[in-house]
Design a binder for these strands. Sequence first.
RNA 1: GGAGAGAUGGCUGAGUGGUCGAAAGCGGCACCCUGCUAAGGUGUUGAACCCUUCACGGGGUUCCGAGGGUUCGAAUCCCUCUCUCUCCGCCA
Length: 422
Amino acid sequence: MLDIQRIKQDPDLVKKAINDKGEKNTGLVDQLLEADQKWRDSVHKLDMLRKESNEKAKQIGVLMGQGKKEEAQKIIRETGEMKSQVKDLEEEVKALSSSRDDIMYKIPNIPHPTVPVGATDEDNVVHKSWGDPLKDEWRRPHWEITDEKGWIDFQRGVKVTGAGFPFYVGPVARLQRALINYFINSAVDHGYLELQAPYFVNEDSAKGTGQIPDKEDMMYVIPRDGFFTIPTAEVPVTNFHRDEILETENLPVNYVCYTPCWRREAGSYGKDVRGLNRLHQFDKVELVKFVHPDTSYDELESLREDAERLLEALGLSYRTLLMCTGDMGFTQSKKYDLEVWSPGQQRWLEVSSCSNFESFQARRMMVRYRKEDGKPEILHTLNGSGLALPRVVSAILETYQEESGRVRVPDVLKPWFSGDYL
RNA sequence: GGAGAGAUGGCUGAGUGGUCGAAAGCGGCACCCUGCUAAGGUGUUGAACCCUUCACGGGGUUCCGAGGGUUCGAAUCCCUCUCUCUCCGCCA
């Protein structure tokens, strides 16, 4: 959610943002301004009416206290009509504010000036490349390796739950556990506080981070208890501070949190869902920052570096893309994607997405800090994966496989293994 | 799951229909005093939103777990829900 003041001050900037993000419906801005003005007028009318009614009620109290029953009765009679007027106006204000909010929620975040304007993923800019993408013909995709060794059991996953819910067996199970440990430890070493979060959230939390109403279909629902399974740790961790005012001297507040993630992924098919490429349940270590608005773009760079460092330590080739306006998503103002090279598939796989939301998320959730003058102000939030497990596992299997078929253990993960091979 | 108690400002905690956004204490902030420190004194100290102002500020509305209701008027009465605590049951 954007700041309405900012929209009022510079509607053209917002229209440009809508255009650049490929949303097209720039008319929303004028609709919003109109709806907002109507709401304001109505609120003001209601406030004035309530004021009058409060004054009368007070008078009655005083008169009753003095025993002047008749005069009091006279005023009571006058207030009869006001009551229904107040009620009507309340309804009106409610309706107007919800139609105003409906429009507001449809207006995307404004891209930062450093974000390239573009329509599709073709317009993304390679910000950094690291390592040489391996091209050996003999390298096989991870699913062939794991099928042969019995390291991932997709079939039993289907039997027990359904497609996209595999069992990890033996060495790969251990590999994932090692990665989770390594990722969390690395983040903690760089100033993130480790959290373990609930895997279900309530409706308020799902609203807070914007999963509902927009992206309701991405989540699994537990209707009996009103819960949603989390599609990412971003949801519980960002909501951790919902409706709070953080101590300014504590900023930035950094969290690292491992959770499984559940995503319904309706409509996916083909090579995208082969092997570990796309699952309904997967593990991810998430990094979340609550920061002072002045520092959020510096924090984005350091967040990106925190994620990149992990891939470098693992010795996996990757590239970092600066996403263009059309490919970056509704809520972000700037976003980097990290893509790891999959030698067995000869393609790039997204393993992290590092975003600055500025105040877009925090405003909806009312997460604030205190300015110098002591007044509360919306802060900025960022998050990024650090990292998503399955595709990292694919890349490791495909990068560290030898022609003989064995798979070496990356050096940084050796503390969790007893030998050099999986 | 059963029985009972409760939910008030950063915290503790008063307030059972009328100048209550809410006593008091603690904490925070500012100033004063005491040759430092400790102690003491005075004042100040919630949030959202609307109107007004270039700004400082001023005015107003709402908020005492949430949502409804009664009433001219609700923190206070009624209903529903949520959560917390105690006891019992169950349990990693």
